[in-house]
Design a protein around this nucleic acid. Structure first.
Length: 659
RNA sequence: GCCGGCGUGGCGCAAUUGGCAGCGCACCUGUCUUGUAAACAGGGGGUUGGGGGUUCGAGUCCCCCCGUCGGCUCCA
């Protein structure tokens, strides 16, 4: 009679036979792909010992999805080496919504290669191969994987922290004990194997046809520009085909919302080659959007106690030495122009100039907090490969402010700025946020200016303000600016993507560099703290974000054209014009379709233009002194008295309503 | 910056092994115009991103540059 052991299964204590595996406990449940044993993810084949606490992990929960995707990455790698036995393996971790695997191959993958890989993967999946864990010593692994230079390199690094090896490398060599996972066919033969920490799904069958090879690209080995580039293949994998389809639909929806596409369709902005990469121009309709935003943001700043200032686009280089920027960012600033014996730089930030405004006269503690704000045009020489629509440009306007405060005021000022940002976003229709706290990288202290105490103090003050907001706070170690830590506000858009918008930075360095002072109540001279903050970061970028958030269907107050008049026939043009004149007199942006298109065509054009209110007038309307509303969703309200219509539209603009 | 893809009227696309640069929308003109996503007819518009090369002949093949897309690295 075999001895029994006691384990806790999904919260219930149970006696089971020795050598019982997680698979024995959950074997009947097909959606259980791995087990969490004493908090650690394990293969279902893992044998339990007395006292183990075991929980099932299902395919559709976060940990289950990670394992599914990681296993799919293995199948991809197996397919690649089946097609090309000379391909060398890099790393292949799960990522958000999918996975990738890096390979060294002589020629990069073509789209046809990717299609073919998908077919080869399907054959592997259909074979129902098992993932079988095998423990190996470092020496054994080095012998077995002698033909895999990257794996050998990872084994060599294992002694240190696997986090240092490469992002994602921990899935290969994460534990103290190296393991190889063999893919075993049903007849018991070994099809393939890979150094891997695991765990894995029990069989490739579970991948079904709910996966897809997405794209390939180059990626630096271990994420370092100095290393060779490998070819990375991205894929996605889901519990069911329906989940995969839903994911692909989400991607298609994101593509439909692409601000570069909508910007062209709605005639908002463009990127003329003649001007240069990353330098957008705003057309009249985009200009309306930009001006409405700027006017509102400027007004709100003034209401919140900011002082509107103005500074030039270029400056002599000495200023950026004083600020400390030039030594850090010279390679991302446009090269200088020589003039009258000086080097002039296009400014990449506004703070040095604001500091000069602060310093232009003696300041008293009574002046603080002093908040300087402007839409400062800055130019940054972004590398050619990163320029992207409006979201990454080389010239843009920052809604930039600098609050000069006493040390004691810093905490309150940060809270004030944070609330101000969040309120602004809500005005623009964004409702869902979280915060990110970027701190100094303790291993790279030379990249950051200032003492241990200063960093600790600044970080503490920022963190307190964040916690008080009640929003989720995500740490971002190493993400700080050289002069101080920062908090950034991340906002979620209509289809769940997050965008970094505001940044608030605590800076104890520039006040010292510029010798900024104020006279305190006791007559002593003190150094203020400056707090940088950009609310939307870049006006251009925020326009891109809003365009995608609304898919071009902006709230009425932001819409370039708010009301479009469409007469049922020529006969009603004059009547409709009189209605529109009434709206224009109330400040509404109106257009009238006087083209010789026929009515259905005008409706089609109106619909494509995404104007919030289409006003239609025909005989019925004119006779009743009314108009008909056609909204963007195609819904219709007929016979609305003219005065009532005007009031309703004006009210929707005033309240920043979405219709 | 690196790797790979792409670049044809304003926009979306086609053009066989290298063999007359085309279509739809938009635009212009004319006829038409009465209720919810495309009336009809005609017309204009191109040094095929730029430069160089191979060839009897290049949108197509080769080289360099520019732009763009997808990633990587970067993002004060």
């Amino acid at each position: 009679m075999s001895a029994s052991i006691s384990v806790v299964v999904a919260g219930d204590e149970r006696a089971v036979a020795e050598q019982t595996t997680a698979a024995d406990l959950f074997g009947g449940e097909r959606d259980v792909v791995v087990a969490r044993i004493n908090g650690e993810l394990r293969d279902l084949a893992h044998a339990l010992v007395d006292g183990d606490v075991v929980e099932p992990v299902r395919i559709d929960e976060p940990d289950g999805l990670m394992v599914l995707r990681h296993s799919c990455a293995h199948v991809l790698a197996q397919a690649v080496q089946q097609v090309n036995p000379d391909a060398k393996l890099g790393i292949g971790p799960p990522i958000r919504d999918g996975f990738y695997y890096d390979f060294r191959v002589d020629t990069p993958f073509t789209p046809e290669d990717l299609k073919n890989l998908e077919k080869v993967m399907q054959r592997i999946i259909n074979e129902g191969q098992s993932f079988v864990r095998r423990e190996v010593s470092d020496e054994e692994a080095l012998v077995e994987l002698a033909a895999e230079p990257f794996k050998c390199e990872l084994i060599g690094l294992k002694g240190g922290s696997s986090e240092d090896a490469a992002e994602g490398a921990s899935v290969e060599v994460g534990g103290a004990q190296l393991t190889i996972y063999d893919n075993v066919r049903r007849d018991g033969t070994r099809a393939w194997g890979d150094l891997c920490r695991g765990p894995h799904i029990p069989t490739t069958k579970l991948l079904g046809n709910a996966y897809k090879v997405m794209r390939s690209s180059a990626a630096y080995w271990r994420g370092d520009q100095a290393n060779e580039q490998l070819q990375r293949v991205y894929g996605t994998a889901w519990p069911t085909k329906a989940d995969l389809t839903a994911y692909l639909d989400r991607l298609a929806e994101a593509e439909r919302r692409d601000h570069r596409k909508i910007g062209a369709e709605l005639d908002l902005f463009s990127f003329p080659d003649e001007i240069g990469s990353g330098l957008p121009v705003f057309h009249p309709k985009g200009g309306v959007l930009k001006r409405e935003m700027e006017d509102y943001v400027r007004q709100r700043h003034i209401e919140e106690g900011f002082l509107y200032v103005g500074t030039p686009h270029i400056s002599k280089e000495g200023l950026f030495h004083t600020s400390g920027h030039l030594p850090y960012y010279a390679d991302t600033m446009f090269p200088p122009m020589q003039m009258e014996g000086s080097d002039y730089y296009l400014k990449a930030m506004n703070c040095p100039m604001h500091n000069l405004i602060y310093r232009s006269r003696g300041r008293s503690y009574r002046d603080l907090p002093m908040r300087l704000f402007e839409f400062g045009s800055v130019y940054r020489f972004e590398k050619s490969g990163v320029v992207h629509g409006l979201t990454r440009v080389r010239g843009f306007a920052q809604d930039d402010s600098h609050s000069y405060v006493t040390k004691e005021q810093a905490g309150d000022e940060i809270k004030h700025l944070l609330n101000f940002c969040l309120g602004l976003f809500r005005d623009f229709g964004l409702e869902d946020f979280y915060l990110e706290l970027s701190t100094r990288d303790d291993k790279n202290k030379e990249k950051f200016i200032g003492s241990e105490e200063q960093w600790t103090e600044a970080t503490r003050i920022l963190e307190e303000a964040c916690l008080e907001s009640g929003l989720d706070l995500v740490p971002d170690p190493g993400g700080a600016a050289f002069y101080g830590p920062k908090v950034s506000v991340q906002a979620k858009d209509a289809i769940g993507r997050t965008w970094q918008l505001s940044t608030i930075q605590y800076d104890f360095n520039q006040p010292a560099g510029f010798g900024l002072e104020y006279q305190a109540a006791d007559g002593t001279r003190q150094q203020p703290v400056m707090i940088h903050s950009a609310k939307f970061g870049s006006i251009e970028r925020f326009i891109g974000v809003l365009t995608e958030h609304y898919a071009g269907a902006f709230p009425v107050w932001l819409s370039p054209v708010q009301v479009l008049g469409v007469p049922v026939a020529d006969e009603y043009v004059d009547y409709l014009r009189s209605v529109l004149d009434g709206l224009a007199a109330r400040g509404v942006r109106v257009e009238l379709d006087e083209s010789d298109d026929r009515f259905p065509k005008k409706i089609r054009n109106a619909s494509k233009s995404k104007v919030p209110y289409v006003l239609i007038a025909g005989e019925d309307d004119r006779a009743a002194g009314a108009v008909s509303f056609r909204m963007r969703d195609g819904s219709q309200r007929n016979g609305i008295p003219v005065q009532h219509a005007i009031d309703e539209i004006v009210e929707a603009i005033r309240t920043k309503a979405q219709v």
